[in-house]
Simulated scan of single mutants.
Amino acid sequence: MAELTNQDRALVRLLQEDCRLTNQELADRTGMSASVCWRRVRALEETGVISRYAAIVDPDAAGLKFRAMVHVSLARTDAATVHSFLEEVGRRPEVLQCYATSGSPDYHMLVMCRDLDDYNRFYDEFLFERSCVGQVSMHLIVKTVKSDVKLPV
């Protein structure tokens, strides 16, 4: 898809706010006809600008009271080891986000669990068991200042 148009940006902003809006509601709010609106949304989906739709769940209401930023440095960084580690991270439901960054440590993960016991199980059964994991540090999140999933389009 070429550069986003103003209409595309308006659609993306509205859908980020409430993805349950009907096509007619989107069209009305953006000043487009329903058919043009439908084609624009479809194009945004097909080109991957909109990759999926999801419900945003409140972690406290879902019982996820333990939140931490976990920093992992790998002891070995050959391609096969990194690939295996990242695949395993991708399968862990406790890991909501994982970022590879420059410098040290190698990976930063947002981890959410019910409580400290759940985190200890995650640590013992996953991180501690990976021979490629060299060092782990954890910073407990004591207060959420800002948490949003809307991109500034």
Rank of each mutant, 00 (worst) to 15 (best):
Q24I: 15
C19I: 04
L96M: 12
C98N: 10
V149T: 13
M138G: 00
D8V: 04
A10H: 12
V36S: 13
T101Q: 15
H71T: 06
Y99N: 11
K143S: 14
T47N: 14
S73M: 05
A68C: 06
R39S: 14
A2I: 08
Y123R: 09
T30N: 10
R40G: 01
D117V: 08
T77H: 09
V12N: 02
A68W: 08
E3H: 11
V82K: 09
C19E: 10
R92C: 07
G103W: 03
R13Y: 05
R13C: 01
D78Y: 12
Y53M: 09
T47D: 15
L127V: 13
V111T: 06
L15N: 00
A61T: 08
L4S: 11
T22R: 09
L11W: 01
A10I: 03
D18R: 14
L4C: 09
A75F: 00
L44V: 06
R76G: 09
N120L: 08
V72N: 02
A80R: 12
K146G: 03
M109F: 14
R40A: 14
L116N: 04
R67H: 06
I141K: 03
D118T: 04
R13D: 15
L14C: 12
S35T: 15
C19R: 13
S33E: 14
M112F: 07
L11C: 02
L11D: 02
S33I: 03
A80G: 04
R9C: 13
D60T: 04
D8I: 05
M112D: 13
D78R: 13
P105Q: 12
